[in-house]
Design a protein around this nucleic acid. Structure first.
Lengths: 117, 117
DNA sequence: AATACAGTTAACCGCACGGCTAACAGTTTT
DNA sequence: AAAACTGTTAGCCGTGCGGTTAACTGTATT
């Protein structure tokens, strides 16, 4: 299994994210992918390698060209981690809300008590 | 607005992700956060800086200690990007499915035609 | 067979990243 | 006032990342 480190690192670059965005709707060759970027081909190839080793894309050589496509379930582990964190956060705010309510009730009780005195 | 580059880069490190996980349930001081890690304090502080400049946490100095907490909506832009990409992917597979159905119908038609001949 | 095309490998380069130690600064505590 | 505690800054260092050019491989085209 590829580490979250590799996956997140792969996304921390605008060129690589652009490639993924381009690959969302459908597959493309190395040349087609590289065309929009002001990069040498070797530099661009390194980005593709990073994406492939992060398990985000898969590639296949057909003749003298190589076609690239998004991997099935590529984003699942990343989305899962984010969802976990958001869940933790919301559980926390829920607890805070309960606490606030409890304090309010306690304050009301004190208020009633004051009135009775 | 903080770039996606910074945000994703901040997540591409196990120490920093661990800090975020720790901070999910509630806030903590620098010392409490640093304690589990086999790092010098200056090294650890750099990680906190990265997280703060990525807009993921916010910190506040109280006396001689500094307390750190998760920022509200910290993960929203990241989750949004991921969701966009997954949407693109699913639209693509939907189109492929439609195409497959269309081809099947076409094949059926051809088949019927063959039978009629 | 020669040429062009698409990608790949190798070797290098500057710089930012992640780590360290040492010294300093501002708050509590005693 | 002195000592202890909690961060913080400064400066250094090795490694890896993102980029380059040059040379090469293998596949189509003519």
């Amino acid at each position: 299994m590829v580490s979250l480190d590799r996956r997140f690192h792969a996304l921390a670059d605008p060129t690589r994210r652009a490639v993924l965005e381009r690959l969302g709707p459908g597959e493309a060759t190395v040349g087609e992918l590289a065309q929009p970027f002001p990069l040498s081909l070797p530099a661009f190839l390194k980005h593709l390698r990073v994406l492939e080793e992060a398990g985000l894309i898969e590639t296949e050589k057909r003749g003298r060209t190589r076609i690239c496509r998004l991997r099935n379930g590529a984003y699942a582990p990343l989305a899962a981690w984010l969802d976990d964190q958001r869940r933790l956060w919301e559980e926390r705010t829920d607890r805070l809300a309960e606490l606030a309510i409890a304090m309010e009730e306690s304050a009301d009780a004190k208020h009633d008590q004051d009135r009775r005195e």
